[in-house]
Design a protein around this nucleic acid. Structure first.
Length: 450
DNA sequence: CTAGGGTTAG
């Protein structure tokens, strides 16, 4: 990287930024043990479940096969991070050092990435520093993982420093991924012009910007509703023969929608079709949001239909937008069908929204459907609804019961398998619908319309 | 190791 970019980065990265600080994360310690923080009696049931997860996770780590799959790590760490249980994350990740995989750079980089995504930058950094003594080779891959950890933990000021010092110190040459990560960092900081200038630096260093570089910039400009700047980036991308994909179009769709330009968004999604760029669930959700905000029930439902027609899967966002909306519009037949679909696939709908549908069906004298829905909700294997029919006595309906309590949440594995077998999988080959995997993996939990 | 909206446990 040229010295001019060093200077620019340095200047940018040392300016105080206005981002709100993340919650405090613990400093790394050398302890691998997890001491109880509270007396047993005052430990909440949530915490009990998380402790069970930690225990189960460490036991599962003994399995070679478990360690090769990042998926279980992602799920567990995401849950712990959501609960702000950073010491638990430290516990399960530091535990991984006892396995021989730790001298494999890919494995260690995965752990750094998990720390980064949890906002635990210090831990990621410490792990990077420890790599030599863990007998783990450090290439540009781990350098990039460190940069990514900065971005994910919003420690933007560190990036300039690392870029200035580490390559020389460790004889590592930054590559295209390194530059793309810098672009992302500048975008997240709101320094969009500087982000675009990195393109020139890349070319000076003989790196051609790729689809990720351009999509990162497009996303930032469109989010900012800087349409004319975004169009310039788009033109540059095409002049470099980089072919736009779905993720180039989606930010533009969202920008048009949030600018109340629905018909232009519809035109754009049609253009995607003509150019052979397949719209995905993000594209359809953007349009559905537009029509929902416009109060247009028919169009919202029509685009829901397009999801299935285009071999796509609705996701939690789709349901969350549509269900309350169609209830408000009084279309309880549609609401009923949607609920039924969602529940039988073991997705969860918020109880309040379910109640909304049940009440609506009752009000329309569709008692049979209402009862069917209540039964469906109650018979759901993983969760329980407290749904009431008119005339039910208070408290008569079931109480919630937790996800397989002995299994510390690793039950997600099983439910993912279940979901994979169902939902729109009935219509698709498993391997060809990666998107469905993503949907199902994150939707075993509450689809959250309450 | 790099690009996704708006949220995510009782």
């Amino acid at each position: 990287m040229s010295s001019s970019l060093y200077r620019r980065l340095h200047g940018l990265f040392t300016k105080p930024n206005t981002l709100t600080p993340l919650p405090k994360t613990p400093k790394p310690t050398t302890l691998n043990t997890l001491e109880p923080l509270l007396p047993e009696s005052s430990i909440s049931s949530t915490d009990k479940r998380l402790r069970a997860l930690v225990k189960k996770f460490k036991a599962a780590s003994d399995s070679e096969r478990f360690r090769t799959r990042n998926y279980g790590y992602e799920i567990a760490v995401r849950r712990l991070a959501a609960a702000k249980q950073f010491s638990y994350i430290e516990d399960i990740l530091e535990h991984q050092k006892k396995y021989k995989n730790i001298s494999n750079e890919r494995f260690t980089v995965r752990l750094m990435s998990l720390y980064g995504k949890s906002g635990m930058f210090e831990h990621a950094h410490k792990l990077f520093d420890e790599m030599p003594q863990l007998n783990c080779e450090r290439t540009v891959m781990s350098f990039n993982a460190l940069l990514a950890a900065c971005v994910n933990s919003k420690k933007f000021d560190k990036i300039g420093e690392f870029f200035r010092e580490l390559p020389e110190k460790l004889s590592i040459k930054p590559d295209k991924v390194s530059y793309n990560t810098v672009v992302k960092a500048l975008c997240e900081m709101g320094s969009l012009d500087s982000a675009r200038e990195v393109l020139d630096e890349m070319e000076k260093n003989s790196f051609e910007p790729d689809l990720i570089t351009f999509n990162t910039l497009l996303e930032a400009f469109y989010r900012n509703k800087s349409f004319s700047d975004a169009e310039k980036v788009w033109a540059l991308m095409e002049s470099k023969n980089v072919v736009p994909n779905t993720r180039s179009y989606n930010p533009k769709l969202r920008a048009l929608i949030s600018d109340n330009r629905i018909s232009e968004a519809v035109e754009l999604i049609e253009e995607m079709g003509r150019k052979g760029v397949k719209p995905d669930i993000f594209s359809f959700n953007a349009l559905i949001k537009g029509f929902r905000d416009d109060g247009n029930l028919e169009e919202a439902k029509r685009w829901f239909g397009e999801i299935v027609r285009n071999d796509c899967c609705p996701d939690r966002s789709t349901v969350k937008m549509l269900l309350p909306f169609v209830c408000e519009k009084g279309d309880f037949d549609f609401a009923f069908e949607l609920c039924k679909e969602v529940i039988t696939r073991r997705f969860i709908i918020g109880t309040a929204t379910m109640q909304l549908v049940v009440d609506g069906l009752v009000k329309e004298s569709k008692m049979e459907d209402a009862e069917k829905l209540v039964e469906l909700g109650k018979s759901n294997n993983y969760f329980h609804y407290k749904l009431k029919m008119a005339g039910d006595q208070e408290g008569k309906s079931g109480n919630g019961f937790p996800v397989d309590e002995d299994n510390g949440g690793l039950v997600l594995y099983d439910s993912v398998k279940e979901v994979r077998r169902s939902w729109f999988y009935l219509q698709h080959q498993e391997d060809t619908c990666k998107q469905c995997t993503l949907v199902s993996s994150s939707s075993c939990r509450n689809i959250g319309t309450d």
